[in-house]
Write a protein that binds this DNA or RNA. Structure first.
Lengths: 225, 225
DNA sequence: CGCCTCGCTTTGTTATAACAAAAAGTGCTT
DNA sequence: AAGCACTTTTTGTTATAACAAAGCGAGGCG
């Protein structure tokens, strides 16, 4: 009798069935995003393998994935290097953000629930707290959480990953230039403006707030070069 | 005696110093873009290795790169499958194109030379020829050449690769639905409109032409579902 | 003192083998 | 004849070894 077939695998806490290369990918991505590697630094497969555990094969998988996302680069002699960026590159990345992020926000607007707003409020509070504390990593994480709580509320599974890819590419550099610029950021509350626009359902105002937020970040970055 | 050290590598015709995984990546990407694989089809590392030459390791590198570009997907049981797409997915991809491509064209406009225009004219002629001939693959290749001759004239190395990624994801499906829609495409000459806008330096008209061109493609695609 | 050359080390690349899980084929039972 | 359990093959994953080229340091020549 086919009562209940089986009980496949409920008691999984840490998923040991996840492939090693995926864990290595996540670890490397997190280190990139928090600026653990300096731009221009070169990484070696064997060093990463012995540091993160495992052999060169899974590290290789992770590195190629990151390379496809432009989070890592291969040099002319096939060396794995953390990408560098000049001011033109920053502007280029920011222009892509200005293009994509207001659109993602506007498209998410009809799908935003009170749960999303709560998440954004929390992230914003944590961000301001980290800002006052001088916690750069915490600031970046909270800022990321705010933006993507908004974008991911929408149905688009195309441009949101694109935006995510842009943010990852910023990781190594935000860490370098934000400490000096952190004092000048609280003058204008773009996030609060965005939240107000969301509550009134004002799409144009939301677009403007996100655009201004990105513009503030750009201003901070090119000011230091 | 150290007369002449060595003879490094001048007589290279086919670059044998290029890594195998890169050749495999290009081969796989080309097959995807021309619809050689059916959506939903599953690929195996060993089969690809023996078919394209080499071992599983370089194939693995190529597959992970394609996976990061969403040109391939890994199934729930870690099987390599070529992605499927429903109408919502097509619309989503097209919305991203409408967002990115007019911008890329507008930004490239000040950098367009007569050489670029010649390339675009040739591509356009080849496209119309392929269209009349019923050559779907030739049509797709020429259309691709036209658009990216335009986009790549500009200085942006961020959004153009994004657009390229979107086009690759379309490959497996254009092949399926274009044969029936090919007869209705010559009514409006968006490419000629774009070229006219370029020669007069009219940015708004160029944006409009590219937007209309993408819209035509979308109309052809969702009409068949 | 600067530059080049030689030798050693480290690097990416590729092939191969072993292993667990999934798929597929096979034969039996009902 | 259809469904089910078992066996066999195929699959992705990982580790490891061998190889060529690039880095890199020391030592010698100008």
């Amino acid at each position: 009798m086919t009562l209940i077939t089986t009980d496949p695998a409920p008691p999984e806490e840490t998923d040991t069935r996840a492939p090693l290369h995926e864990a290595i990918y996540q670890a490397l991505r997190a280190r990139l995003a928090t600026g653990a590697f300096a731009p221009g630094e070169s990484l070696s497969l064997r060093a990463l393998a012995s540091e993160l555990g495992g052999s060169v094969t899974p590290v290789r998988d992770a590195v190629w994935r990151l390379t496809a996302e432009h989070a890592l680069t291969i040099g002319p002699t096939r060396r794995i290097i953390v990408p560098e960026m000049d001011e033109d590159g920053i502007v280029e990345l920011m222009r892509a953000r200005v293009l994509l992020e207001p659109e993602a926000a506007a498209r998410a607007l009809p799908f935003i629930t009170s749960g999303h707003i709560a998440t954004m409020l929390n992230a914003n509070a944590a961000m301001n707290s980290a800002l006052r504390r001088g916690d750069v990593v915490g600031y970046m994480a909270s800022n990321h959480a705010f933006h993507f709580a908004l974008y991911r509320a929408g149905p688009s599974d195309v441009i949101v990953p694109m935006i995510e890819g842009i943010w990852v590419r910023f990781g190594p550099f935000m860490r370098l230039m934000f400490p000096q610029a952190v004092n000048e950021l609280d003058v204008s509350d773009r996030h609060g403006d965005a939240l107000a626009a969301i509550e009134t359902g004002d799409e144009e105002r939301l677009r403007a707030a996100i655009t201004a937020d990105v513009g503030d970040g750009l201003a901070c970055m090119i000011k230091k070069t």
